[in-house]
Amino acid sequence: MSLRLSTVILPVDRWHEAGRAKWQRAEELGFHAAYTYDHLSWRTFRDGPWFGALPTLTAAATATDRLRLGTLVTSPNFRHPVTLAKELISLDDISGGRITLGIGAGGNGFDATVLGQEAWAPRERADRFGEFVPLLDRLLTEESVSYEGDFYSAHEARDIPGCVQRPRLPFAVAATGPRGLKLAARYGQAWVTTGDPALFETGTAEQSVAALRGQIEKLGKACAEIGRDVSEIDKILLTGFTPERNTMLDSPAAFVDFAGRHRELGFTEIVLHWPIPDSDFAADQAVFERIATETAAQLR
């Protein structure tokens, strides 16, 4: 089974200073895709530069030719399906059909309260996500949509001419719980995980692999329940949140070892954070670029 290598570029640079160069370099290095986080601010970056995901991806689409582009991930925290669908159709058109929408239920970070609301409880996040994804699917595949739900509404929403990619751009659904995995099974062209957060601080590599194996098994059961072959769904691991995060980028050999163990689990794509000095994603840029250029053939 071949394994694709992608990167996620946090939107922390002014476009004309360093932003454009990073996205173009990602294409030069041969990454399959480059993603960005769809937040209004995030963790330790909250008090520093942070630009909007969709405008950044639009700029990246005009600065690159082959690189797939996308969000990891968009959530309902500050998005509405109707307006998001219009922006995605536009972005898919500008990019020539190179967009993947990573989408998840959201969490309790800054995005959860920035609009002045109380942070949603886990059940409400799951309920909203359960409406958001099917409605967005309809908006991206039908010319006119009317819908009245518990959380979202649409009245004769028109998205003509639709996506360049047919029947719509692919969804990469981030999920580990049963309800989210059912959405991934039904609507996802890909599934995204960051591993088991309970293992982030004190877990071992072996425990992480076992947890990921369990997640993939649950995805397989969710697919079996609706008669879908789980092999139809790409499986994406967003790295940086597993116990090996501090060693996997030490050398190309260390990364090949990490990637090989996860390919055996069934992952088809691994996403690395573009290095950011003095952050949780600090790494040697030269080694990072060697991993991109030297390990691709070994991972096919």
Rank of each mutant, 00 (worst) to 15 (best):
P197V: 06
G266H: 01
P161V: 13
T64I: 07
G104C: 00
A21C: 08
R79E: 06
E27V: 01
L29W: 01
K22G: 09
P161L: 13
R300I: 11
K218V: 12
A205F: 12
F132A: 00
L5Y: 01
L91A: 03
A61D: 05
V209R: 09
A283E: 03
G130K: 00
D229Y: 06
A63W: 06
D229H: 04
S153K: 12
R245H: 10
T293Y: 04
L212V: 12
G19D: 05
L199Q: 05
A253N: 08
T141V: 07
L54M: 11
R263L: 01
P11M: 11
V192P: 08
I160F: 14
P76Y: 01
A157I: 03
Q165W: 02
L169T: 06
D65V: 05
K22R: 15
E201C: 09
R158C: 13
L91W: 00
L3T: 00
G52W: 10
Q298Y: 08
A205G: 14
A26T: 02
A105R: 03
A286T: 12
P161T: 12
A18W: 12
A224N: 08
A33Y: 07
E217P: 15
V209S: 11
P170L: 10
T71K: 09
A185S: 07
G240I: 03
P170D: 04
G240V: 06
S41G: 13
A60S: 07
F267H: 08
Q165M: 06
T193P: 05
D111P: 02
V12T: 11
N77R: 13
W274R: 04
V145S: 05
L136Y: 03
E294I: 02
A112Q: 07
F132K: 00
P243L: 03
G266K: 01
L140P: 03
A112E: 11
L3K: 05
V173L: 07
G220R: 04
V73W: 02
C223W: 02
A33E: 05
P178Q: 11
V73I: 12
W23D: 02
I270P: 09
P11E: 05
A34S: 00
E294N: 04
D93H: 15
L84I: 07
R123K: 14
S95Q: 04
T268R: 10
R20K: 15
I291Y: 01
G188M: 01
F200Q: 11
S41V: 13
A157W: 00
E217I: 15
T62A: 15
P49V: 12
T242D: 14
T141H: 03
S144M: 13
